[in-house]
């Protein structure tokens, strides 16, 4: 089991950041992802491994400043 934005998600072998976002139906155009507190660049989402019991944060970034 992993945690994504404080919600539980079943973990499976070989899970990547892309898999997590797809499972959560996160399809926003601007998302910042960290896994266990480490920033993960978008270019690495399809290969970055998400370990069991990981804490994942996926933050939707909005315009405005």
């Amino acid at each position: 089991m992993i945690t994504i934005n404080e919600k539980p998600l079943e973990w499976r072998e070989g899970m990547t950041v892309d898999d997590v976002l797809e499972a959560m139906n996160y399809s926003f155009s601007h998302i910042m992802v960290s896994v266990d507190g480490k920033y993960v660049a978008e270019i690495d989402w399809d290969t970055f491994p998400v370990p069991d019991e990981a804490v994942v944060q996926a933050i939707h970034i909005f315009h405005g400043g």
Partner: peptide
């Protein structure tokens, strides 16, 4: 989120307009 800190409501977009006090 690790070394990244976010301040704000995390939901509102600039299309709603910008108010001095809230910014």
């Amino acid at each position: 989120a690790g070394q990244v800190y976010f301040c704000g409501d995390g939901t509102s977009d600039m299309s709603a307009g910008l108010c001095s006090a809230r910014v």
